[in-house]
Deep mutational scan, measured.
Amino acid sequence: ARYHDEKKIIKDILKDKGFVVEVNTTFEDFVAIISSTKRSTTLDAGNIKLAFNSL
């Protein structure tokens, strides 16, 4: 259940930042955007990776 909650937070962060994940978006770029907000401090690193892979 935590993964789904965190995935929603991640999607909200991406929307707030106006960031669109494209086919050529690197995981490093994705993490940089997510990490640039205070909301990301509680996110699990594994869940961030899973969310990236699912987009």
Score class of each variant (00 low, 15 high):
A1V: 08
A1N: 15
A1H: 15
A1K: 15
A1Q: 09
A1E: 12
A1L: 12
A1F: 08
A1I: 13
R2C: 04
R2Y: 06
R2E: 02
R2T: 11
R2V: 02
Y3A: 00
Y3V: 04
Y3D: 03
Y3W: 01
Y3L: 04
H4N: 15
H4R: 10
H4E: 14
H4V: 13
H4C: 10
H4K: 14
H4G: 08
D5N: 11
D5M: 14
D5Q: 15
D5A: 15
D5G: 08
K7S: 12
K7L: 15
K7R: 13
K7P: 00
K7M: 15
K7E: 14
K8G: 09
K8H: 08
K8I: 06
K8P: 05
K8E: 11
K8T: 09
K8Y: 12
K8M: 13
I9C: 07
I9M: 08
I9L: 12
I9V: 07
I9R: 04
I10H: 01
I10D: 00
I10L: 04
I10E: 00
I10K: 01
K11N: 15
K11S: 10
K11D: 15
K11Y: 13
K11W: 08
K11V: 13
K11C: 06
D12K: 06
D12E: 15
D12Y: 08
D12L: 02
D12R: 10
D12T: 07
D12P: 00
D12N: 12
D12Q: 13
D12V: 00
I13E: 05
I13Q: 00
I13C: 00
I13W: 05
I13H: 01
I13T: 01
I13M: 05
I13V: 05
L14V: 03
L14P: 00
L14K: 04
L14I: 11
L14S: 04
L14A: 03
K15Q: 09
K15W: 06
K15I: 07
K15T: 08
K15G: 04
K15Y: 07
D16Q: 12
D16R: 08
D16E: 12
D16F: 07
D16H: 07
K17A: 08
K17L: 08
G18Y: 00
G18H: 07
G18Q: 07
G18D: 11
G18S: 05
G18W: 02
G18M: 00
F19D: 06
F19P: 04
F19I: 07
F19G: 01
F19V: 03
F19T: 02
V21I: 10
V21S: 03
V21C: 15
V21R: 03
V21T: 07
E22L: 03
E22Y: 01
E22G: 15
E22D: 15
E22W: 00
E22C: 09
E22R: 10
E22Q: 10
V23P: 15
V23W: 13
V23L: 13
V23Y: 14
V23H: 15
N24L: 00
N24K: 09
N24H: 07
N24Y: 03
N24F: 07
N24T: 11
T25L: 01
T25S: 04
T25K: 03
T25D: 04
T25F: 00
T25A: 03
T26R: 11
T26A: 10
T26V: 05
T26D: 07
T26G: 03
F27P: 08
F27N: 02
F27G: 01
F27V: 02
F27R: 02
F27K: 03
E28N: 06
E28I: 00
E28F: 05
D29P: 04
D29W: 06
D29Y: 04
D29Q: 11
D29E: 13
D29V: 03
D29S: 12
D29F: 02
D29T: 05
F30G: 02
F30A: 08
F30M: 01
F30N: 08
F30S: 01
F30R: 02
F30E: 05
F30D: 06
F30K: 10
F30Y: 12
V31P: 02
V31F: 09
V31Q: 15
V31N: 03
V31M: 14
V31C: 14
A32N: 13
A32K: 12
A32G: 12
A32D: 09
A32P: 00
I33T: 12
I33M: 10
I33G: 02
I33P: 02
I33F: 09
I34W: 04
I34E: 00
I34F: 03
I34P: 06
I34C: 07
I34Q: 03
I34K: 03
I34R: 03
S35I: 03
S35Q: 13
S35F: 11
S35P: 01
S35C: 12
S36Y: 07
S36I: 04
S36A: 08
S36E: 08
T37G: 08
T37A: 11
T37H: 14
T37V: 11
T37W: 05
T37L: 00
T37F: 04
K38V: 08
K38A: 10
K38T: 10
R39H: 12
R39N: 09
R39Y: 10
R39D: 06
R39T: 09
R39L: 11
S40N: 05
S40L: 09
S40T: 04
S40R: 06
S40I: 13
S40A: 12
T41W: 02
T41S: 14
T41E: 10
T41K: 12
T42K: 13
T42A: 10
T42R: 09
T42F: 10
T42V: 06
T42I: 06
T42M: 12
T42D: 15
T42W: 06
L43R: 04
L43E: 00
L43T: 03
L43G: 01
L43C: 06
L43S: 01
L43V: 01
D44R: 00
D44T: 08
D44L: 10
D44K: 12
D44C: 06
D44P: 00
A45V: 09
A45W: 12
A45F: 14
A45Q: 13
A45I: 12
A45H: 11
G46P: 01
G46W: 08
G46Q: 14
G46Y: 11
G46T: 12
G46I: 08
G46D: 14
N47I: 06
N47D: 01
N47Q: 05
N47A: 00
N47L: 00
N47W: 02
N47C: 11
I48H: 00
I48M: 10
I48G: 02
I48Q: 00
I48A: 03
I48D: 09
I48N: 11
I48S: 02
I48Y: 11
I48C: 05
K49A: 13
K49H: 09
K49S: 05
L50E: 13
L50R: 15
L50K: 14
L50T: 14
L50I: 05
L50N: 03
L50Y: 14
L50M: 14
L50S: 12
A51W: 01
A51Q: 06
A51E: 03
N53T: 15
S54Q: 11
S54Y: 07
L55R: 00
L55E: 05
L55K: 02
L55S: 04
